[in-house]
Simulated assay, not measured.
Amino acid sequence: MIRRSSAAFVAAGLLAVAAPAFAAEEVNVYTSRQPALIDPLLKAFTDKTGIKVNTVFDGKSIEERLKAEGANSPADLVLTVDVGRLTDLVAKDLVQPVQTETLKKNIPASFHSEDGKWWALTSRARVFYVSKDRVKDGEIKSYADLADPKWKGRICIRPGDHDYNVALTAAVLAHVGPEKTKDWLKGVKANLAQKPQGSDRSQVKSVKEGLCDVAVGNTYYMAAMLADPEQKPWAEAVNIVFPDQAGNGTHLNVSGMALTKSAPHKDAAVKLMEFLSSDEAQHIYADLNNEYPVKPGVEWSKLVKSWGTFKADTLALAKVGELRPAALKLINEVDFNAGP
């Protein structure tokens, strides 16, 4: 689906062979985030600066699109989710560094790459959704507990090689090393109620239906379920538990941005990046998506506040991105997706 694109941008977005002409004050964005989640942000930027933003929504193949377009790509900026997708853009040499005082002031060091090739915008916590009826307060406290035999047949999780679970495994790997991480993966696998499948939300549905007692998922899915009449009963059947409050803290992942290597409108794109890191944009983004702003001091949405405060893992996400290949190797070595 393509939104707010000039005819030239549409053609170039599908298969660019030559860079089209644009007005001087434009920014072209490729995004894997649904338009409804970012359009209000981009409108606020245009209202503030007069700079037009053209967007192409692509949920799966932004990297392939950029590679095919090469130096002729019309894209200036990528907005995507998961540190893995951001680091993949870097690894494939599709983005360039940005270092401005505004970005460095607004976004903490743990939420961007050291060289400035990607910058986080919002974060989400990877938490436990536990049955209100079958799990007592304090009964499960840490990611390590997922491997405790007491939870045999009681855990639900999406496939281990999904980006979100690879990132979580990479964080575990950073903290405890490869041998203990492999043992942990084996333990979690043995405790699964079923073969890993579906989405984070479908795991919560399984808890509601009594198939399992604990599901692993991202926080913002709670908001999405509560907003959906069909899924609201799933959300109402569980409590949120923030793992590792007595240890390293709860694992975070991010949505983020990166300036493309070609960036025909670099100056305007950097202005948009700085705006997205501002108090105004961070507040809009956090409210729209019920995620956590990365800029310190920006107020959380009312719903997010209701879930309570928590200690977050301070592990640099660049380290998580670096360890993703090793984490995925361990996931595959234990044949995690085969299930219990």
Score class of each variant (00 low, 15 high):
residue 4 R to C: 07
residue 65 R to M: 12
residue 251 H to E: 14
residue 49 T to F: 08
residue 261 K to Y: 02
residue 133 D to V: 14
residue 197 Q to C: 04
residue 331 I to L: 12
residue 127 V to T: 12
residue 160 G to L: 08
residue 162 H to R: 09
residue 274 E to T: 01
residue 122 T to G: 01
residue 140 I to H: 08
residue 305 K to V: 05
residue 280 E to Q: 06
residue 201 R to M: 15
residue 237 A to Y: 07
residue 306 S to H: 05
residue 252 L to Y: 02
residue 229 P to M: 07
residue 179 E to S: 11
residue 77 L to S: 04
residue 65 R to V: 11
residue 282 Q to L: 04
residue 216 V to T: 15
residue 298 V to T: 01
residue 306 S to R: 02
residue 155 I to P: 01
residue 59 G to K: 08
residue 332 N to L: 06
residue 336 F to L: 09
residue 97 P to C: 13
residue 314 T to K: 03
residue 102 T to H: 03
residue 8 A to F: 03
residue 189 K to F: 15
residue 225 M to S: 03
residue 140 I to F: 12
residue 148 D to P: 05
residue 143 Y to P: 06
residue 324 R to C: 09
residue 334 V to P: 10
residue 215 A to I: 05
residue 62 I to P: 02
residue 243 P to F: 03
residue 134 R to E: 15
residue 313 D to S: 11
residue 333 E to M: 07
residue 69 E to Y: 01
residue 206 S to N: 15
residue 94 L to S: 03
residue 148 D to N: 12
residue 279 D to T: 13
residue 217 G to I: 00
residue 177 G to R: 06
residue 192 L to Q: 14
residue 41 L to R: 00
residue 241 V to S: 04
residue 166 V to L: 13
residue 334 V to K: 06
residue 213 D to L: 11
residue 15 L to K: 10
residue 89 L to G: 13
residue 259 L to G: 05
residue 109 A to I: 05
residue 62 I to W: 00
residue 154 R to L: 15
residue 289 N to R: 00
residue 58 D to C: 13
residue 163 D to F: 09
residue 59 G to H: 14
residue 310 F to W: 02
residue 59 G to E: 15
residue 158 R to N: 15
residue 112 H to K: 04
residue 233 P to K: 04
residue 166 V to I: 14
residue 340 P to E: 05
residue 269 A to G: 10
residue 131 S to V: 11
residue 239 N to G: 10
residue 216 V to R: 00
residue 196 P to S: 09
residue 138 G to N: 10
residue 222 M to D: 11
residue 33 R to E: 15
residue 269 A to P: 06
residue 229 P to C: 06
residue 156 C to T: 15
residue 110 S to E: 13
residue 274 E to Y: 01
residue 269 A to W: 04
residue 104 K to D: 12
residue 119 W to S: 05
residue 340 P to C: 07
residue 93 D to C: 01
residue 94 L to D: 03
residue 7 A to K: 14
residue 3 R to G: 12
residue 91 A to N: 12
residue 47 D to H: 00
residue 236 E to T: 02
residue 87 T to Y: 02
residue 71 A to N: 10
